[in-house]
Design a protein around this nucleic acid. Structure first.
Lengths: 226, 226
DNA sequence: GATGAAACCGAGCGAGCGCTCGGTAAAGTA
DNA sequence: TACTTTACCGAGCGCTCGCTCGGTTTCATC
């Protein structure tokens, strides 16, 4: 309940990014998750895809959930695939924006950046579990260039963490004889949060992030700390 | 290439289990992964589901891949859903049989059992990645009681690891102030192998299992060892 | 060589799919 | 008031879906 949810709502977050929520440009804003803020049709599509998957969802289900007729839905999005691509873009962009903001926001030692990135990953996958889950599990359903773009974004995102781990190994902060597997394992741990975490469960995202921060330090071969 | 792949093929594995491959009843047999041994129609369904997901796969694709006509396929399985359930059962049963065999096979200290279970989980998700991936990602597509049975099997499987971790925390072998999250994180790491590991990649499953064994010890708060 | 079971297939049924046609209603602008 | 834009919908098109009907072929057994 308490945590450090960093409510700084008096400052309108509107500087470098596109001005959309999720840009999180202000200091500390990368851990502020107030509004979901998806357009109604997208929110309906997300809910349907989470329940039945992309191919298991019909356009009529999405329309009904959005309170629209089928042609009414097609007024906002040109195809079912476009709904998926928009959700995927939203997820990948928001995670990237938050991650880069987290890395820039504070002391720049390797361990500080590691801790902030882990916190960012955990908070995102807890708060935006649905979005992250779809982006992770429906890669196969992305058609044409959208799939390649997703994979490029995922690799770029993954490089943030593995870069820090490589740095930490080079400077002796991390004891990781196989940095690639260490990085893979930590990434999997954090993204896995989207698969099981429920926002109405026992832990707040902030509490979970504290616990995962400690676990990831251990996995990376750092001192337990806090 | 070397590893400890425990080739003991002279002894026919045929004692306690149903006699099917994957029962792995002989000593050390839980880490012997020689034959995939799925019926042709199931193997075809698995390949299709991996490429396009359950709902994204048509019965005609499965039939073609199996070298059958559509009615020919229906001679072996009564429905598309039955193919998925059979694959899911195969995955859950094989993992359970191997896990219980691994726990029984050797010294019974907490750390010994932990190491063998982690090794078993990693080897399984590397060798049987396709099967494990479908069982993990298509839970939503299981209809009726099959979904509840899968979840029961998954919880039973999960309890093997969390039980050991609780034991280790109680006896002071593991330093884990939040055993449930530790258990969840380690499980996620190991099952995550099915999402990215390729059998034709740089690491053999046995090498990967060695590295993951070390990582999981760290995550659990044990001494690094080896 | 007759018999029955198992293995298989060409053709196609009814249903539901993604998507569109040709509109109407409401709101902003001149 | 006329005109444009935006937001929406009833009806339905063409297609593919999971599945089945009514067969034929293969093969072990007598």
């Amino acid at each position: 309940m308490v945590g450090q949810s960093a409510r700084q709502s008096t400052t309108p977050a509107a500087a470098t990014g596109a001005g959309r929520p999720g840009a999180a440009s202000a200091a500390g804003g990368w851990q502020d998750f107030s509004p979901p803020a998806l357009r109604p049709a997208l929110a309906a599509a997300l809910a349907c895809f989470m329940e039945n998957g992309y191919h298991g969802t019909t356009i009529r289900q999405v329309a009904t959930r959005a309170g629209l007729s089928v042609p009414g839905l097609y007024h906002h999005f040109p195809s079912k695939q476009a709904l998926l691509v928009a959700l995927d873009d939203e997820a990948m962009n928001e995670l990237w924006n938050r991650s880069t903001a987290a890395l820039a926001d504070g002391p720049q030692s390797v361990l500080d950046r590691f801790d902030r990135l882990i916190r960012c990953l955990t908070l995102f996958h807890a708060h935006r579990g649905g979005l992250a889950f779809i982006a992770l599990s429906e890669i196969r359903s992305l058609e044409g260039s959208a799939r390649a773009e997703h994979i490029a974004a995922r690799d770029r995102q993954q490089a943030l963490l593995s870069g820090i781990i490589d740095e930490g190994v080079a400077t002796g902060i991390f004891d990781a004889p196989h940095p690639r597997e260490t990085s893979r394992a930590i990434t999997t741990m954090c993204t896995g949060v989207a698969q099981w975490y429920r926002i109405d469960g026992e832990l707040t995202p902030e509490e979970l992030a504290d616990r995962y921060g400690r676990l990831c330090r251990l996995t990376a071969g750092a001192a337990a700390g806090r």
